[in-house]
Simulated scan of single mutants.
Amino acid sequence: MADRAVHHPRGRHLRDRAPGTRPPEHHHRGAHGCGELRRRQPRRRGAADRLSATARGPRTDTGQYGSYPSGHPPATKEPEMPDPGMSGSEMSPPTSPPSLHSIAHVALTVTDLARSQEWYQRVLGLEYVITVPHEGGEGIVMADPDRRVWWAIHRHDGQDLAPFSVTRTGLDHVGLQVNSVDDLHAWSGWLDSIGVAHNGIAGLPDFGMAALVFYDPDGIPLELLAYT
């Protein structure tokens, strides 16, 4: 179809463009009065366009791992976690005892909670953590400042108030390891300075260690050990 001239009401000449033909070229007069042709430029994006794009948010793509920001797919798929509801009977039984990490805490029954709490905090430098009421009694939890040694003392209603004895079934003593023999000497001096009796530092050659033994208010033996 041929283009035909159309007279604009203001006198400008426009052209009706047939489908598939090139866009019209505008006649522009340059700074020196010379006519030049300038092709129609695409419309520049304004602030309103940018605001609209911001409101829509970033473009997202969808893959096998779900939706993610465009151009940033996840590197790997999240591993599937085991079913927490699986009981021990549904797992293969071990052929030997599972490993242990460490002793989680020591818990002792004492005759006087307040007296023992004051003693352990003053002598061992433990800090009060929490009081734990339990059926038929009460417990107090303490720990060293680094939270590596956890210590609990308990009182039970109707408990036997007889003095502690290593010959009675149950606890014999509690052993705590220190870093060196020099630390044992430091502990010996500390106990002397606060008036806590002890047995002095003794060698344990069969174990390659040295030990320092003293007793809590109920007569429970506490043993500090160091490798020689």
Rank of each mutant, 00 (worst) to 15 (best):
D49G: 02
A55R: 14
N199Q: 14
H28P: 01
Q41P: 02
E127F: 11
W150Q: 04
E25Y: 13
E135K: 06
P23G: 07
L225T: 12
R4M: 12
K77E: 06
Q117K: 10
G200C: 06
D182L: 00
S165M: 07
P9G: 03
P94T: 04
L191H: 09
A55N: 05
A47Y: 11
H13E: 15
S89V: 10
A48Q: 10
S96I: 01
T109S: 02
P217H: 13
G195Q: 12
G20A: 09
G139T: 07
R122E: 02
H154R: 13
L204W: 14
W150G: 02
G158R: 08
D192N: 15
L212R: 01
V149C: 00
D49Y: 09
W119Q: 00
D183F: 01
A48E: 15
E135R: 10
L171Y: 06
E78N: 00
L224W: 10
F214Y: 15
H185P: 04
R17V: 11
P217D: 08
C34S: 06
D216T: 05
P94L: 12
S89G: 00
A143S: 14
V166E: 13
P42I: 00
S165Y: 11
S67I: 03
L100S: 06
D182W: 02
G85W: 00
P145C: 10
M1C: 11
F214Q: 05
C34E: 06
A47V: 08
P84T: 02
C34F: 04
R38G: 02
S102W: 09
G208A: 07
P42G: 07
A107F: 02
P93I: 03
G189P: 07
H173Y: 09
H105G: 03
R29D: 07
Q117P: 00
T109G: 02
V106G: 00
A197T: 15
W190H: 15
Y215K: 09
A107D: 01
P79S: 08
A107T: 04
A114Y: 00
G170W: 04
S89Y: 14
H13G: 07
A197S: 14
P93R: 03
L14R: 06
Q117H: 07
G35L: 08
F164A: 02
H154M: 09
R15D: 01
G11H: 10
D61I: 00
P145D: 12
F214I: 10
T109C: 01
T109V: 06
S193I: 15
G71V: 12
D144R: 01
L225N: 05
S96N: 04
Y215I: 01
Y215E: 12
L222P: 06
L224E: 11
L224Y: 12
Y128M: 00
Q121E: 14
D157P: 04
A47Q: 12
T111Q: 03
V123Q: 05
L51V: 14
L113I: 10
Q117A: 10
R59P: 04
G137P: 03
A104K: 06
Y65F: 11
R122N: 08
I130C: 00
A18C: 05
L51G: 09
S87E: 11
P19L: 00
L176I: 13
T76K: 06
Y65I: 00
L161A: 02
V129K: 14
P24M: 03
M91W: 14
L191Y: 15
V106A: 09
V141T: 03
G71R: 07
D192Q: 15
